[in-house]
């Protein structure tokens, strides 16, 4: 009788532990997914800001056509790269877009009226903070991946993770070329 009770208690405890571990893993994995979608939200925010910026700059520096067109083209490229879902391609297109924006702001330096424009200053603030947010969203994604990968690889969770198909996630890594100077075609 006692033996049966002990066995029942052990089974209940093990089942409870499995349920707890499983729920914990699901929560951590969902956080990784959420962190990834956060990056897309911020990228989209940047795409939405760019047409306004181009319009504003046009009003003051219409003959900087090439720079403006480079930004618009880079934006279109980045959006279509995002839709393909190829992470490497997307990272490259985003880098080109960042570079194009940088040269647009460099060009703006030569136009005092533009630099004093309230709308332009606001857009500059929004774009700078969006760049920050993209970086922070990637950082948070990587932190979440680290936490998740740690969880599914340590004993005894790894036994559970492999039987329920919790797969290792990859980090978002900056394009190795991005550390060098960004080339912008004019």
């Amino acid at each position: 009788m006692v033996a049966v009770l002990v066995i029942i208690v052990i089974i209940v405890v093990v089942l409870l532990a499995v349920a707890l571990f499983y729920n914990g893993l699901v929560r951590t994995r969902n956080r990784v997914d959420n962190a990834w979608s956060q990056i897309d939200v911020q990228l989209k925010r940047r795409y939405d800001l760019i047409p306004n910026l181009v319009e504003t700059v046009k009003g003051y520096a219409a003959h900087e056509r090439q720079t403006l067109e480079a930004v618009t083209a880079a934006r279109t490229n980045a959006i279509s790269a995002q839709q393909t879902g190829n992470v490497g391609q997307q990272a490259q297109a985003e880098n080109v877009l960042s570079g194009a924006l940088k040269s647009l702001f460099a060009v703006a330096e030569a136009y005092p009226d533009l630099k004093a424009n309230q709308n332009f200053l606001q857009l500059q603030e929004e774009l700078t903070s969006t760049e920050d947010r993209i970086a922070y969203a990637r950082q948070f994604y990587n932190d979440s991946v680290l936490n998740y990968n740690n969880k599914i690889q340590v004993f005894p969770r790894n036994l559970l993770a492999s039987s329920f198909n919790f797969e290792k996630r990859v980090y978002f890594e900056g394009d190795p070329e991005a550390t060098g100077p960004v080339k912008v075609q004019f």
Binding site: A35, Q42, E125, E126, S129, D132, R133, F140
Partner: peptide, 16 residues
């Protein structure tokens, strides 16, 4: 206080 709001929003993303 646009910059204040923007900075905090960014940091909140990083900190979750």
């Amino acid at each position: 206080f646009r910059r204040y709001h923007n900075l905090v929003e960014g940091l909140c993303i990083a900190a979750g």
